[in-house]
Design a protein around this nucleic acid. Structure first.
Lengths: 156, 156
DNA sequence: GAGATTGCGCAACATTGTTGCGTCCGGCGG
DNA sequence: CCGCCGGACGCAACAATGTTGCGCAATCTC
């Protein structure tokens, strides 16, 4: 993993439809070795996958909700039940166990508040919580999947 | 936008490297009209773009922090200054104005806690806050960019 | 300093993207 | 009831891109 790989990653995480020839030209390589680097980055899992990003509002799923959760039952059994409950709900796009006041933070994407309530009821039906608190996104000011690659520390 | 478009979108948001022929076969279409549908979805902005997803840990940027922010200055000028401050920080991957106890929620991606502190200092240098509270992700249980497309209400 | 290793570039071939055209189905007006 | 018209599909050809093998140069190792 050198500077070239980093530049390739940065190009691809902003535009995954770039051709190997495009990238080769921009990083100053010919297309075959560039393609092989991309291939290696995929096979080693540095590039997990490439996906299409859909405009949520264009498909009427434009409401994002952040839900914080507290549990009173800090057991492995509760955790497993919790994961089983939330992992397969497609509206739940992120689940983090976090430090601080709350125990878990969920990111939920739904068409509207009514649809959130359906998800909420499905949550509390599958699992016991000490507290569940929803915070609706009124305006998404920025949103990107790009990871900052300015940290030069990882030149192997 | 019909059922076929929805299936195409769902395939592409899980694997953007699928060829038009692959998708055509899975949705029961021949490749030309399928390609034209994909093209139309891109041109109308339903598909915003396709990107490569990078394993954060593979590039040593594996720490996610959720930062909630309160302001005492609810003015348009403050908002503009806030957006200017945070929008161009690459470590800040999401900015939401939210309902509830706090005013804004930021999602920040950094290599470690020290790097978060650098971002924090950059934040408070550019903008005045009533409160800033960080919550570190200790474990990412689920993470996806896929939007739930099970809502059949949008058959135009 | 010689051999081994790694990565690059060139060139050929396979696969996929892209376009034009003819056909079929469904809706609309005569 | 019939014929016209618009939209979407399928087929086939062509252009662009992905993919692979091979030879060469630079670097590292011993």
């Amino acid at each position: 993993m050198d500077r070239l790989d980093r530049r390739i990653l940065d190009l691809l995480q902003h535009d995954g439809s770039l051709t190997a020839a495009d990238i080769a030209e921009r990083v100053g390589l010919s297309k075959a070795p560039c393609w092989r680097r991309i291939q290696r980055l995929q096979e080693t899992g540095v590039i997990q996958r490439t996906v299409a990003l859909i405009d949520p509002k264009a498909v009427n799923v434009g409401t994002t909700v952040f839900v914080t959760v507290k549990t009173s039952n800090h057991s492995a059994a509760w955790f497993e039940q919790f994961v089983r409950t939330v992992r397969d709900i497609p509206e739940v796009t992120e689940i983090h166990r976090v430090s601080g006041e709350v125990d878990y933070l969920l990111r939920i994407v739904v068409p509207n508040i009514d649809a959130y309530d359906v998800v909420y009821k499905r949550l509390i039906a599958g699992c016991a919580f000490l507290d569940v608190s929803a915070s609706f996104s009124l305006e998404t000011i920025k949103q990107t999947t790009a990871i900052p690659l300015n940290y030069a520390a990882f030149d192997d």
